[in-house]
Design a protein around this nucleic acid. Structure first.
Lengths: 253, 253
DNA sequence: TCATATATAATTGTATACAAAATAAATAAA
DNA sequence: TTTATTTATTTTGTATACAATTATATATGA
């Protein structure tokens, strides 16, 4: 019942897996599904189902899930399965703090190597962003918005930092999906444009400040207060003298 | 021939894998072997061999190798196998730059929450470091030296950053193994002590500067010029008009 | 009816089997 | 002897099979 599905959804866009490995394709596909909101946070990613969908065995699905877990996009509960991560408010704050730290450093690096074509590419990126926003393509905008930041990281030229930032940007998308208030922010484009201008002018303090403020604005547009209750539920009910238990997971037989 | 080995080297220290998964144990074991210099950079990590050694199937070994690859401790060449990573000089500089960025941020965070017991723990950590150094236990010192930095990250309280720093510290160990000049550096302990003092005094600029200098000193103690030649060997010989080839990897039949 | 216990089904964890590729060895040609 | 080509061996890539665990459904007793 597994052999019947002939690698359906995957080879739609790509040639029969020459340069890019099958695993990379599935990885990208799952990621895209999450960001296009076809896969909500908390959704279970059953190995058999995914295997059937992508026409491969559980072996490769497992590999993909482990990779996603390493990047904190997916959370694996041993013996229970993999689920699309549901970042806690604390985690959200951590990610944004880490981004402020890393991206301020990236800005400082970028500003010391002013390349006209880099600036141009950045402007184009923001233009694409705005177009996507005008078109009402929210998922597309989320991705392009991340692209702007990744492009800066690429210009900075530190591959290691760029990899970390890529993970953080991905997690940020997930966080926005979960905690963004209202339908959407006017945000993004304008602030990105201002950052480009500051870089172009070679004004380091301004560029750094703008980046920090931009990320702070992002964080401020989330509401990170509510769901905390769900996570701390056990703590709330666990009063001294009265044990609650965790639904039979601690007491194994 | 696989079933015969009864989980030999692993369950030496740990109870029969209750809380910690088998994979975590093997992961830790391989990591330890690399840092204790029993496994040199460039060494091939054959799946069958590791499976036999740890008394498990290739499935789990594969999982461990993928995890190590994600952390850049191991490099996987498709269809050719996994090898202990040999960080290039460029990569080494990247890692140290990333550390400067992240650890300056961590220092700033730590200094705003002055906890006596944290300071005490830091001092103890450095004491252990010195003891290890006096004992002549170089691998032990490398690990403890990293521990100091990780402890700071833990105090800062950002789990996300701490995870990244852990990876960077691990990679740094590998880099030191490969590029440290001389037999050993006097380094480390004293500078760590100074950092603690600056934190204790609440002197942020000093603490930040000390951390930056400390990591710069680390980098300066490496020689990151030589081996570059080995990596660029093909580029060197590949003059226009004369093809060299890569030993039959490009020309597939 | 509700709670508990038991049996059944579904899902993950791990090992093994087979296919594809790469390396090593051996043979043939110059 | 050296180089090229073929064959054999080893090693990785992927699928499948079986074991262990968890979730669901059914039955039993209060």
């Amino acid at each position: 019942m597994n052999r019947t599905a002939p690698t359906a959804a995957v080879n739609r866009t790509e040639a029969p897996s020459r340069k890019v490995s099958q695993i990379d394709l599935i990885y990208a596909e799952v990621l895209a599904a999450i960001f296009e909101q076809r896969l909500a946070p908390g959704t279970k990613l059953a190995e058999d189902a995914l295997g059937e969908i992508f026409g491969v065995s559980r072996t490769m699905i497992r590999s993909v899930l482990q990779r996603l877990a390493h990047e904190r996009i997916v959370q694996i509960h041993p013996n229970r399965g993999a689920f699309v991560a549901e970042p806690t408010p604390d985690e959200a704050r951590e990610v944004l703090q880490a981004r402020r730290l890393i991206e301020e450093g990236i800005i400082r690096e970028v500003i010391r190597k002013p390349s006209p074509e880099d600036i141009k590419a950045l402007r184009l990126s923001v233009a694409a962003e705005r177009a996507s926003l005008d078109k009402g393509d929210h998922p597309g905008w989320v991705r392009l918005s991340g692209d702007f930041h990744l492009r800066l990281a690429a210009i900075a030229g530190n591959e290691t930092l760029a990899v970390y930032l890529r993970e953080l940007v991905t997690r940020t998308s997930l966080i926005i999906l979960q905690y963004q208030k209202g339908n959407a922010s006017s945000c993004g484009c304008d602030e990105h444009m201002e950052i480009i201008r500051a870089i172009d002018a070679g004004d380091e303090p301004a560029a750094v400040a703008l980046m920090r403020d931009h990320l702070q604005t992002c964080e401020d547009q989330l509401h990170l207060e509510d769901r905390e209750a769900a996570a701390d539920l056990y703590a709330i009910f666990a009063k001294p003298g009265r044990t609650v238990g965790k639904g039979g997971r601690e007491t194994r037989k």
